[in-house]
Write a protein that binds this DNA or RNA. Structure first.
Lengths: 124, 124
DNA sequence: AAAATGTTTAAGCAAATGCTTAAATAATCG
DNA sequence: CGATTATTTAAGCATTTGCTTAAACATTTT
């Protein structure tokens, strides 16, 4: 760690407060960052967006819609599932994926903004 | 692309609608995904959180607060700057970073939830 | 001008990411 | 059962990420 970089005019008290503050929220930050990094991929964000509109979709549907191979989709779904953002339900030989409402709250506003964005432009 | 995976019971009309829908929002998705991936890193999310509380901070402050080397911090700030989430202002030899309000809207709700989280627990 | 301070850049490297193709599981159907 | 369909897993590989250390810049101080 660089030891010389304690600014001459640094507000020592402010920095100390920030350290305490950030340590308090660190656990929440870790959880949220995980959800954001999962959503911060174009393909996965598209999947989440589609699931928010269609309620449930299978890997095959998503493969068709997003024009990607099934394994590629499946691996993204696996990450989303392991991250708790989606859940799956097997019906016959097809597996339907859907959002886990409780864990999707963080990115709900984001999905909503995308949804709104898609509406007709209001008069400017 | 796998050609055999058109589900027997697939809702062809639904899939077609989804394809059109997703193509319409694709540009927005790309922009949002970029912001989310930038925020989806613990260190950068901490930086954004701290900037939302302290208004402006320099690399040196952040280095002290987050207990990381200055170059490591600087590289994160560079990404945030290039992604348009933060801006910088030089005062003497120190550089102050602050949030770009217009471009931070997507993750504002996230930061807010972290802030709320940090308050005293309400009686359950 | 020389030294010190604050920041950025560069090079190197280990680990993570995201795809591909091929193979392995599962469930349905003839 | 054997073939087909839907999904998952595995292995390989190119790219990206995020750190480290060292060096380069820029500004202020002595």
């Amino acid at each position: 760690m660089s030891k010389s970089c304690i600014r001459v005019f640094a507000d020592v008290k402010q920095i100390q407060q920030c350290k305490e503050e950030i340590n308090k929220v660190a656990p929440s930050i870790a959880i949220v960052a995980k959800a954001l990094s999962l959503s911060g991929n174009e393909v996965r964000l598209k999947i989440l967006y589609l699931l928010s509109k269609e309620t449930k979709l299978c890997p095959c549907d998503l493969s068709d819609i997003l024009e990607m191979t099934v394994p590629a989709i499946s691996q993204h779904l696996k990450k989303l599932r392991e991250g708790g953002l989606v859940t799956s339900e097997k019906v016959g030989q097809t597996v339907f994926y859907s959002l886990v409402e409780d864990n999707i709250q963080v990115i709900k506003p984001v999905l909503k903004s995308l949804f709104d964005n898609n509406k007709k432009e209001p008069v400017s």
